[in-house]
Design a protein around this nucleic acid. Structure first.
Lengths: 203, 203
DNA sequence: GAACCAAGTCAACGATTGTTTACGTCACAT
DNA sequence: ATGTGACGTAAACAATCGTTGACTTGGTTC
């Protein structure tokens, strides 16, 4: 239960920022995999090796902890699709975040976009980030505000985003093989096919 | 199912099969939209307009009710992808089930495939159905057991399935516009693009 | 060393969860 | 009409949930 405690005589315990981070990591893992309602604060605290009461102390409430996880994920996900990405670059980035090195950690951030606590503010953050990601992906396909086919391009980008999100779920929640254990390389090709088919500007 | 239909002020209550169905419908709606853990048996009973205790009577437990919903959905979903469907037919069927007439009801069945109660047997049913759907979709792309590129084709079909499932989530859980209110016609085109790109046999 | 305060612990709170038990009540066969 | 059994109701059960307040511990500062 206790995390690696290999600092013999120095710090490690009694460090507010460190335990806060332990709680965030444990909570994100649980929230991403099992959802908000199915996750108990005692589970989180145990996994973090920390007392339950510290959740209320550092994050006010379970919802506060969830929101903190979501905001952290939202910040991190800005890096998934850069402004100047090509369509292939979008596909490559998706594959890297879903199956690359440190994929567990990255996939958790992605899954947070699909978890809801019922809290309005958290839902707003989630919704805004999904919308942002879709627009970034649409941009790779020539979309811009005021484009003559603005809505169609955005719709197609949202379908592409849906594919990536559904992929994250099928790999973790359900464990569909061979998808679940497909590595980054194996995932890049079909993702490139999807992104190309959906985002490539029509003739 | 058999007895007198709509007596205005008299019967209607005291019909075991009917209330059982009321519970199933209410439960499927809640489970599909909010997940298993976030749904309480009292919510279900209230929405069905029946007493809470009847859940235990007719379905043994909350998990029993969930499993009944899932099995019903699994049976229904066999119709989504028929054996002899072409790639375009798969896309059309997906669009019809997600946005066609009676889409609410159909989409709920789809979402049940993504909801987990933690129960092993339910998870097996869910997993088997997902695998079945992916194989059916792969079949539309020329896949068959023993195919030289069997794993690759199946992987691509699973990505296609992920796209359809992700679409169901983004339309209901998150409510991303214009995707959420896109009708069947508007959804057919991008879905055809996805299915075509993923399932079409390579040169 | 004493004082002080943040960090962490412990036990309990009220509320809500799924489930059960004992009790009404309506339909139907005799 | 009258039991009789299935259908439905109401109240309560134990367990668990998130949260709180009083307490102890350990590090830092005079």
């Amino acid at each position: 239960m206790l995390p690696a405690e290999d600092q013999p005589a120095t710090t490690r315990r009694r460090d507010a920022a460190a335990t806060r981070q332990l709680l965030l990591d444990a909570a994100r893992r649980r929230f991403a995999r099992n959802g908000y309602a199915a996750t108990t604060v005692r589970e989180i605290a145990d996994q973090a090796g920390v007392n339950v009461a510290l959740i209320s102390r550092y994050f006010v409430s379970k919802e506060g902890l969830f929101e903190a996880c979501l905001m952290g994920a939202a910040d991190e996900l800005d890096r998934v699709v850069q402004k100047d990405y090509s369509i292939d670059a979008v596909a490559a980035s998706m594959a890297r975040h879903l199956a690359g090195p440190s994929a567990d950690w990255q996939a958790q951030q992605v899954l947070m976009l699909l978890r809801s606590s019922g809290d309005e503010q958290a839902d707003r953050i989630r919704h805004a980030k999904l919308r942002f990601l879709a627009e970034r992906m649409a941009t790779a396909g020539g979309w811009y505000p005021g484009h003559p086919e603005e809505e169609t391009l955005l719709l197609r980008a949202q379908v592409a985003l849906a594919a990536a999100l559904g992929l994250a779920i099928l790999r973790t929640s359900a464990v569909l093989e061979p998808l679940a254990s497909a590595d980054q390389e194996a995932l890049t090709e079909p993702l490139r096919a999807v992104m190309g088919a959906l985002l490539t500007p029509q003739a």
